[in-house]
C-alpha cells in the first residue's frame, strides 16, 4: 500500500523524527498542565460548592455554559481578554483549564456531598479540625469520582489540543494542518496514532495513580 510506504518515507527522515518528538512534548505539556491545574481548582471550587449552596447552583450552571463555547473560539479570544501574546501557549493552556475545571467541578462537589455523614461525624468526634478532616477524610474518599472525571478530562484535553493548530499552537495538531495542505496522509495518520497512544498511556498512568491513592478499594477483592 502506498500509505505504508509514505509513512516509512516520512519517518525515515531524522529531522522529521526530531520534530515529531518536539510536537509530542508540546502536546503533553499543553494537555497535562491544564489537567493538573484544574484538579486543584476543581477541588477548591467543589469545596465551595459543598459548603455554600448558592455557589453550587451558580458554578454548576456556569460549567454547563462553558461547554457550549467552541474550543477554537476560547483559544483565540483569551489574548483579547487577558492581554497575553497572540501566539502564547498560555492561551491554549488557560482555555483547556477552563474546560477541564468545568468538567470536574460537578462530580467533585457531588462526591464530597456523598461522603456519608457518619464518617465526617466520626472524624469530627476524633477531634479533626475542618481543614484536616477535609484533607484526610473527605478528599481521599472522593478520589474515585475525581479520578473518573480526570480520566475523561485527560482524554478530551489530549484530543482538543490539536484544534490549537488552527491558531499556531497545536502540538501534534500541526501534523493535521500540514498534511492537509500537502495532501499527504502520512503525517495525518501519524498524528492520529500518536494522539491515541498518548491518551492511552496517560490513562493507564491515571488508573495506576488512582489505585495507589485508594488502597481501601482493593480490600476484600480476591
Amino acid at each position: 500500500m502506498t500509505a505504508v510506504g509514505d509513512i516509512a518515507k516520512y519517518l525515515g527522515d531524522a529531522g522529521t523524527r526530531a520534530a515529531l518528538l518536539d510536537m509530542l512534548l508540546d502536546h503533553v505539556y499543553l494537555s497535562l498542565v491544564p489537567l493538573v491545574v484544574s484538579v486543584v481548582l476543581a477541588v477548591l471550587l467543589g469545596l465551595l460548592c459543598h459548603r455554600f449552596r448558592q455557589v453550587n447552583a451558580t458554578l454548576i450552571g456556569m460549567s454547563n455554559i462553558v461547554y457550549t463555547i467552541p474550543s477554537l473560539a476560547l483559544f483565540a479570544i483569551i489574548p483579547a481578554l487577558i492581554g497575553t501574546q497572540v501566539l502564547d501557549p498560555l492561551n491554549v493552556i488557560i482555555a483547556l483549564t477552563v474546560y477541564t475545571t468545568a468538567l470536574l467541578v460537578r462530580p467533585v462537589a457531588e462526591a464530597l456531598a456523598a461522603v456519608p455523614a457518619h464518617v465526617t461525624a466520626a472524624a469530627t468526634a476524633m477531634g479533626f479540625r475542618p481543614l484536616r478532616r477535609f484533607l484526610t477524610v473527605e478528599l481521599p474518599l472522593s478520589v474515585p469520582v475525581l479520578a473518573a472525571g480526570v480520566r475523561v478530562g485527560s482524554v478530551s484535553n489530549i484530543s482538543l489540543v490539536s484544534v490549537g493548530a488552527l491558531i499556531g499552537t497545536g502540538g501534534l495538531g500541526t501534523l493535521f494542518t500540514d498534511g492537509f495542505r500537502q495532501r499527504y496522509l502520512a503525517p495525518i495518520i501519524i498524528g492520529i496514532v500518536l494522539t491515541l497512544v498518548l491518551a492511552l498511556v496517560v490513562d493507564l498512568l491515571l488508573v495506576l495513580l488512582r489505585n495507589r491513592l485508594t488502597p481501601w478499594a482493593r480490600v476484600g477483592k480476591p
Binding site: V33, P34, V36, V37, S38, V40, L41, L45, I78, L81, I82, P89, L90, I93, I94, T97, V98, T101
Partner: peptide
C-alpha cells in the same frame, strides 16, 4: 478562574 489558572500556569510554566 482564568486569573488564578494563569497564575498557577505561569508559575509552573
Amino acid at each position: 478562574i482564568v486569573a488564578s489558572a494563569a497564575l498557577v500556569v505561569s508559575a509552573c510554566g
